[in-house]
Design a protein around this nucleic acid. Structure first.
Lengths: 162, 162
DNA sequence: ACGAGATTGTTTGTATTCAAATGAATTTGA
DNA sequence: TCAAATTCATTTGAATACAAACAATCTCGT
């Protein structure tokens, strides 16, 4: 039962601020809990916590990159970045860590000397196959508070604003 | 080599492999685009991009911390962290940067010598009031692809899984 | 054929985000 | 009362995430 609200007497300041332009009205009306950005951050947090609990030694982002390569086959870093919604700098860190663990391999493109092609190794492919079931149940658990109808609705609405 | 024969061959292989561990089936069925975690990440990304475009010199997280202090008055770091869904280490970085810019002030609690009380400065309070209108329009723009009914639905569903 | 402009990969810097460890202070329970 | 457990703030380290700048390479229009 922490109550440090009275620790610093700011009541006077607040009363003085009560009679001012329309800026203050907007500020008074602002409710963090009702903002889409805050709710998205909290929902992501819960999902990431569930992911980490189930799949400890691979991050959600690393798994997403592996999933995309599994789906589409070998891709350049730029293409993989676009396909996973990661910018070039972020993706480089992700694939570097996957490469360091022997889960992906990189090879220069023969057609375009700028490009580096990323592919899953046999080990990476095997690991992804082994974890796919767990990944499904992670999504399931994240959506556990919702009915089947609500789950479809949420995914569809998120798709629209993504 | 026509596509449909490849499809049939693929199905045959899958059926033949049904006796093996279900791992590979789950891997084949996994669709990144349909996963709640991926959709949450992409929706957050779009929201953060809109935020940065509108309010360049303050991050969404920093603004959230200021909003909470504006709502609730002076809080300890631990309380503010709980109230904004940030862990202690994260919150410290956020309030340190706000303090460096003169937007919040820190003072030791008189009741509990472990605690550090965070409050908005006059400048921080004024800045928050000035930006509150922009913050509303950021949430508005993030939800722009949705109808009013869909917006209510999305916020309600996110609240349930947060 | 060639040069302007775009693309690719990389690096650097800043800002979350969390886990884990630590020391100081407070609260709890026997 | 007093030792154990908890809380608080802080630090460190690893992993996204994005902006900005860079050199190497490619594409396209003329």
């Amino acid at each position: 039962m922490p109550d440090d609200t009275a620790d610093l007497a700011d009541t006077a300041i607040r009363v003085a601020a009560a009679s001012r332009p329309a800026d203050t009205d907007a500020a008074e009306a602002y409710r963090l809990d009702a903002q889409i950005g805050y709710l998205l951050r909290r929902a992501s947090q819960r999902h990431l916590a569930i992911f980490a609990e189930r799949i400890g030694d691979l991050t959600s982002t690393q798994f997403a990159a592996m999933a995309r390569v599994y789906e589409r086959g070998p891709l350049s870093q730029a293409d993989l970045g676009r396909a996973t919604a990661m910018d070039a700098a972020t993706l480089k860190g992700v694939v570097d860590r996957l490469q360091a663990r022997g889960l992906v391999a990189m090879a220069p493109s023969l057609k375009d000397r700028r490009r580096v092609i990323v592919d899953l190794t046999a080990e990476g492919r095997a690991l992804f196959a082994r974890l796919a079931t767990a990944a499904f149940s992670i999504s399931e658990d994240t959506l556990a508070p919702l009915t089947a109808e609500e789950r479809r609705s949420l995914l569809s609405l998120l798709e629209k604003i993504a």
